[in-house]
Design a protein around this nucleic acid. Sequence first.
DNA 1: TGGAATCCCGAGCAGTTTTGTCAGATTTAT
DNA 2: ATAAATCTGACAAAACTGCTCGGGATTCCA
Lengths: 149, 149
Amino acid sequence: MKISTKGRYSVTALYELALHYGTGPLPLKNIAQGQGLSENYLEQLMLPLRRAGLVKSIRGAQGGYMLAREPKEITIGEIITTVEGPIAVVDCLLAEAGAKDQPCERACACVTRGIWEKVCDSISEVLGGITLQTLMDNDKGSEHVGCAR
Amino acid sequence: MKISTKGRYSVTALYELALHYGTGPLPLKNIAQGQGLSENYLEQLMLPLRRAGLVKSIRGAQGGYMLAREPKEITIGEIITTVEGPIAVVDCLLAEAGAKDQPCERACACVTRGIWEKVCDSISEVLGGITLQTLMDNDKGSEHVGCAR
DNA sequence: TGGAATCCCGAGCAGTTTTGTCAGATTTAT
DNA sequence: ATAAATCTGACAAAACTGCTCGGGATTCCA
């Protein structure tokens, strides 16, 4: 039950972009250095984020990345599902959505399914309710103690 | 963001025990066969569950496992944290609880921490609110369609 | 026009975690 | 005694994580 660094790094990177929203492209190097992340690794995370339409990129010198939408229009849930895949705490739930496989091989008494559905819904609700704008608003005047990068 | 098979298997195993609550020990073989799980693997999961005081075991012939408490006194959250460790979606949150390390090496602006805390709280709340008894009550009269094992 | 900055993309890789398997020791009912 | 069970530790294949690296493509600027 861990959120990988992919998700965390992506959120902080996009938060950085949100802080510079409207001021032209921000090169990856700046984001990486500012947050203490590996530039090469971060580069890999930007690929799916760009394809998902969360960020836009400008190549060449003086290029960089920028948010494709306003900070208030980008939720943390979107960012995380983009780089980590769907929030399905068990594969069973995925199969139903995609309908590529049988929902479950065993015709067993499925008493646990409801649990995982509730967990997924709960996580989605929390992450879907927080936007980059929310983070910026909350950050003003906070104390900056502990940190998850 | 997956719940491992450890957690899922444990829940179904203990659910099976709940169904037989009060009727003497149930051997592992029955549980494994009934739910289609590996007996050897399940055996490993019972060790922490026993040490955590969720199940009791009786060795020797005619032995087996039984719940150590009433089904309504055992939450899904307890089961999962026992076999998977604490529900901390990022290590940062763990460090605070254990206080063995610095909460975060970097004195960075920690705008994301609040997100992970909310996710953890949300998951804990959902899993802590469901007991084995809940599952038994819900199961009566359900349709048994999809299944997460 | 040339070079520097910057994104784009795929390959690879070391370490950890997951998901088991297996063999044997121990305990107990019959 | 024997069979039925739990207990315990070692081992291993496969998947995943968290990166690194090298080269290519594009664009700005002098």
